[in-house]
Amino acid sequence: MAGSNPNAKPMNLTLNVWRQAGRHTSGKIVEYQVKDISPDMSFLEMLDVLNEDLLRKGDDPVAFDHDCREGICGSCDLFINGRSHGPEKGTTTCQLHMRKFSDGDTITIEPWRANAFPVNKDLSVDRSAFDRIIQAGGYVSVNTGGAPDGNEIPIPKEISDRAFEAATCIGCGACVAACKNASAMLFVSAKVSQLALLPQGHVERKTRVENMVAQMDKEGFGACTNIGSCAAECPVGISLENIAILNREFLAAKATSNNLA
């Protein structure tokens, strides 16, 4: 019943899926077969098919995180055939479609792997470390109500656009998953540069970068070695330039802030 192409052939696939009962148990790869997969299905719809099959057989369906299924909420997070969000560039798992695969393919599906992202169950991981990094300083401290008129501070369009590009990070964690060092620098740098570029962020510029980096280190993420996997796998194209900005901000803050701690 393919929508776009009535002649598209359904596919049969072998899935190697990471199964793990809970946070403190060990897991393993389990092989499943799925049949009659339409090339027009999204990857998660293919997993829905698998899960419905498992459920009908009385087996435990595969747990995975997902929500909006339109590439913006950042919930979905599968490591597919050795790649964050699978083989297609600039795409989240939910927007990856089965036409990118062929009949008879074997697909390996794993959770993000990072010490700071413990597995909840199967393919679902805990990414609250990202929240704690934002809590450490990823904001402008303005209480509701006291804001001046929105047009009070003109911001050059070019600066505003660059800040926007950094701000589009969806917090999925693909950068950490792809990085050899499980580093979260692309994530952290996206927020730091957004707020470093905008005048609104300047007041807390130094403390922000100091605190966010400290929290990032505390969470146990690795250090960036400029490999570039993160940016290559980022579904929304956050640029490595942001990491340079982060480094610069950090260095400048440490060198000039009055913070002795």
Partner: peptide
Amino acid sequence: LTRRNKAARGATGYVSNHSEQNSEWTSRNM
């Protein structure tokens, strides 16, 4: 850094990892 970064990945690594498709060999093997 190598010690820290190895630990950051955690005890369980990937079964399948095709980092050659997203980065240069040199960069990963400094």
